[in-house]
Design a protein around this nucleic acid. Structure first.
Lengths: 194, 194
DNA sequence: TAAAAACATGTAATTAATTACATGTTCGAG
DNA sequence: CTCGAACATGTAATTAATTACATGTTTTTA
């Protein structure tokens, strides 16, 4: 691959760019604009992946160049032009291929609290208990948020059957937060009543 | 901050650069070389943060410029010069300040398997069960690895007392993997005996 | 009806992080 | 004594991701 001299002409997308697959997956559900895709990260996708519009718009352009998506312009009102993107057959294949690939990598979790904990050397460090308390509040809040999402999104069995994967990951996230809180509470020393 | 004209002269390190604190924290334990720090990511730190030497060496240079660390050169054998880095009082303060700050952000977990699951729409999708099986093997392996680490690193109470935070995060990681495997197994449909 | 919020789309600058390039030394095993 | 593994330190190129800059339209609400 180093001797052909053609590599620079190819529109290449980094192998580890997983955002592109999220975009393909979202567009597989229905045609959407860049704005719509951006909004999706405020809602369900936001629970497990983050992206801003400044990353999405350029990527849409690249995906169109690689032939994975196309767009058509629709005009709302007098002059506001929206670009509705949709998958091409090639884009759909690419999505299916990605889902079918093995996922042999462990999550690279980058939890700042865990990082700080590592540098707490002794059980009686006065910073430990306040840190645990802060994290309990944080994760209890996240747990309530996730439970609320589950209650509002999956109100009946039909909703679960139509978006089973989404149901699974929300269920997984809820359990993860429950266990996180339980773990934190186990190491929290109750404060004395004064 | 936008009108002084002096900003460009300051050596600034991005606010979210948490690798610098890992380096400060590791150097707080004992003076070390860039190579030693890199090795630390192959071992315990590697469980929850990743960095290559190509990121570490330039950062050591910047931390020295900002006055957080200093180094002295020691020669091994005939001519191999090692740079032993150590914290300055300013660097120590910076580490302490960071640990003392609140950590109000949730982990941005970027789990490719979870991402793929989101796009599985129905319970009878033939890709689902193989995906669950693959992840069970992956997380069982990780669980065994973590348990082995715990058994070898924390062989007695004294070891726990000296590195309590490390003990906590290893304990946390083990429980997280246990729950992950349990969760996966719950959705795994047993294969029929043929 | 005026203002604010939401809709809509982009680029620029910077930083973080990975992969590849590049070089040389020391130590231990065979 | 030689060869390979581990020690040791850097830079370059690329990609990913965030924050800031930049502009304009439509809809809702006060």
């Amino acid at each position: 691959m180093k001797t052909t001299g053609f590599e620079k002409e190819a529109v290449t997308i980094g192998q580890r760019n997983r955002l592109q697959y999220i975009i393909l997956g979202l567009l597989d559900q229905r045609p959407q604009t860049g704005y719509d895709l951006t909004k999706a990260f405020d809602n369900e996708i936001g629970e497990f992946w983050q992206a801003q519009h400044s990353q999405i718009y350029p990527l849409l352009k690249r995906l169109e160049e690689t032939g994975d998506i196309t767009h058509e312009v629709t005009v709302t009102g007098e002059k506001l032009a929206k670009k509705q993107y949709q998958l091409t057959p090639a884009g759909h294949e690419k999505l299916v291929a990605w889902i079918g690939e093995p996922s042999p990598e462990l999550t690279a979790l980058k939890d700042e609290f865990i990082l700080k904990l590592y540098f707490i050397k002794t059980v009686d460090d006065p910073r430990l208990q306040p840190m645990l308390q802060e994290q309990i509040l944080l994760h209890q809040r996240q747990l309530r948020h996730l439970q609320h999402r589950q209650e509002t999104v999956f109100t009946n069995q039909a909703a679960i059957d139509q978006a089973y994967g989404h149901y699974l990951i929300l269920d997984h996230a809820i359990e993860r937060e429950q266990h996180y809180v339980q773990w934190l509470e186990r190491y929290l020393t109750p404060r004395k009543d004064s």
